[in-house]
């Protein structure tokens, strides 16, 4: 019968042959698709992380400055020296302060964008948060150098308003003060806060978007005041988003070395220590050991966050 031959079409060319092969062995296609990216990330990234770990277990010969490629815990022990341990404590404290500040300042914006912004305004708010997140990091930091400089806009505004005394008394505070905003912890904190704020707002907004209005109405129906509704309904529901956002703000602050280098006192943060140790000081093992600290802190942090269900809001 003539039709019999037409039920199955002939193979045309290499494309058909390869397609047939992938059809017969779908896992082969999967492996071929995954191989390049997984190899890249596995070799370049994981390989490098392993290299970092290896380096951190090496030490440096104090006289010659040459790396001794032998396993030792001495480099990690050095982290516990008061001057080094202070750096870790200082960095973690700053990360916590930045996270707290970002949550407090970001919440109204996230809440407003999630609950009240609609239509065109929704897009405005979305872009208003997205654009600062993506725009140039260095430019953002630079902008704050201009703002916080003694002769800059804040100094000018404070003087114009006659508030110099207030600013000076703030700067006179121990630890967080300094000679000017741009050389104080307050300045460092402000810039961190500014640069990482969008990372806090977006997941917060995402988790708030998922709170149904009916739930808020139910709460006020049951006689809750606005503040009670917020405290007992909105805030707990926004918590996973806040934790997700805090992962970003915490991790990013832990690892940054540019901001404290440009705005702040001369006291170092982890990032600066890593950068200087691997560069001018040439002590790559200690730099590597320092770099492992944020990893350990973040692993602990992520483990806690996972238990609180923060990953659903990412």
């Amino acid at each position: 019968m003539m039709t019999t031959n037409r039920a199955i079409l002939p193979e045309r060319g290499l494309g058909d042959r390869l397609s047939a092969l992938f059809w017969r062995k779908p896992n082969l296609l999967l492996v071929l698709l995954l191989a390049p990216p997984v190899l890249w990330l596995g070799v370049v990234y994981l390989g490098s992380l392993v290299a970092l770990l290896i380096q951190s277990f090496y030490s440096i010969d104090e006289f010659s400055g040459v790396i001794v490629p032998e396993f030792t815990l001495a480099t990690y022990a050095e982290l516990l020296r008061p001057s080094n341990f202070d750096i870790i404590v200082r960095t973690v404290t700053m990360a916590a302060a930045v996270t707290l500040g970002a949550a407090v300042i970001g919440f109204p914006l996230a809440y407003f964008a999630a609950r009240y912004a609609r239509g065109k305004w929704k897009a405005v708010f979305y872009l208003g948060i997205m654009l600062p997140l993506w725009s140039s990091y260095l430019v953002k930091v630079y902008a704050w150098k201009l703002i916080l400089a003694k002769e800059g806009i804040i100094g000018w505004a404070v003087e114009g308003l006659g508030g110099s005394a207030v600013l000076n008394s703030v700067l006179a505070l121990p630890v967080i003060g300094g000679t000017s905003l741009s050389t104080s912890y307050i300045g460092t904190w402000l810039v961190f806060l500014y640069v990482w704020l969008p990372y806090m707002i977006l997941p917060m907004q995402a988790s708030l978007e998922r709170v149904p209005v009916s739930m808020l109405e139910a709460s006020s129906d049951l006689g809750a005041t606005r503040w009670q509704t917020f405290r007992t309904v909105v805030f707990p529901l926004a918590m996973p988003g806040i934790i997700a956002g805090s992962i970003f703000t915490f991790s990013l602050t832990l690892g940054d070395y540019i901001i404290p280098q440009i705005i702040g006192s001369s006291r170092r943060f982890i990032g600066q220590a890593v950068y200087q140790l691997q560069g001018t000081a040439g002590n790559v093992p200690l730099a590597a050991a320092f770099a492992v600290v944020p990893i350990v802190i973040m692993v602990v942090y992520l483990t806690i966050a996972r238990r609180k269900g923060a990953f659903d809001a990412l």
Binding site: A7, I8, D16, S19, A20
Partner: peptide, 17 residues
């Protein structure tokens, strides 16, 4: 079998179906 032919080795693009 499609019109008598075993289709076991024929991917979708070569079946006149």
């Amino acid at each position: 079998r499609i019109f008598g032919q075993d289709s076991g080795n024929t991917p979708p693009n070569r079946r006149n179906v």
